Simulated assay, not measured.
Amino acid sequence: MKTILAYGDSLTWGYSASGPTRHAYADRWPSVLQAELGEDFHVIAEGLNGRTTIYDDHGADCDRNGMRLLPTVLETHKPLDLVILFLGSNDMKPWIAGRALAARQGMERLIELIRGHAYGFEYAVPKILLVSPPALCRTEDEDFAEMFEAIEESQKLAGAYAKLAKQLGISHFDAGSVAQTTPLDGVHMDAENTRAVGRALAPLVRDILNS
């Protein structure tokens, strides 16, 4: 059995802007990916609302720093065949970073952590799939509009991540190629779009793990 860790933020957790609430389990992209891949694969959903790549959010009610939490998560779920990194939207908050370059640098650090982790027991270093989130969109929700104002910067994430992936020799997928954010809050995906991400990732994940 191949084990896949889906390490992300609210887009992986399954935040639904209508309500707000959480998408049904079957609608979340890691669940859809699991269903598409079948019983020979095990997808571990590690989504946390507000998670950043490497940055602190001192106003949060728990630790949202993806860099600080990642080593523990890797150790918890080893051995792993593939880690899917799906982060960057929260880095767009103005008090976090607000720049695509900052998110790219954060992702580079996470990739270094995955490659340098001491897995032990002669376990292999997992392969890595870097996923860029769909770009932010305009919303009438005043709080979210102010919180995620860096729409133009978010549009740069796919290109920045693709360049990083090529540089480091890992795989990349642009979630914005199959999904878009909802204008209800400008940052999250509705059920149809999050399902689309899971379906689109399945053939790529198979290719990665069979290569």
Rank of each mutant, 00 (worst) to 15 (best):
L201D: 04
A118F: 08
E192T: 15
I208F: 01
L168M: 14
G176T: 11
D27E: 15
A45S: 15
T21N: 10
V197S: 05
E142F: 10
D40Y: 08
A124V: 01
L113Q: 15
H188T: 08
K166A: 14
A124F: 02
A102Q: 02
Y55T: 01
L69K: 12
D185P: 09
A179D: 03
N65I: 11
G66A: 07
S89F: 00
A124K: 12
G106S: 04
P126Q: 07
K156N: 03
Y7R: 04
I111N: 06
T139D: 04
Q34W: 10
A158S: 15
D27R: 05
P94F: 06
V197A: 08
K93Q: 14
A100R: 01
L184D: 14
G159M: 05
A200T: 07
L48M: 15
E46Y: 11
A135C: 05
A35S: 14
E122N: 15
L48W: 09
L11A: 08
L201Q: 10
H42C: 10
L101G: 10
A100Q: 00
D185N: 14
K2R: 14
L48Y: 08
L201F: 11
S31P: 02
K163Q: 14
F86H: 12
G14A: 04
G120I: 07
E149I: 11
C62P: 00
R199M: 07
V43W: 02
L110I: 07
V73Q: 00
D207G: 10
G116L: 03
Y161D: 04
L101W: 00
K166N: 13
K78S: 12
Q167G: 06
A191K: 09
L204W: 00
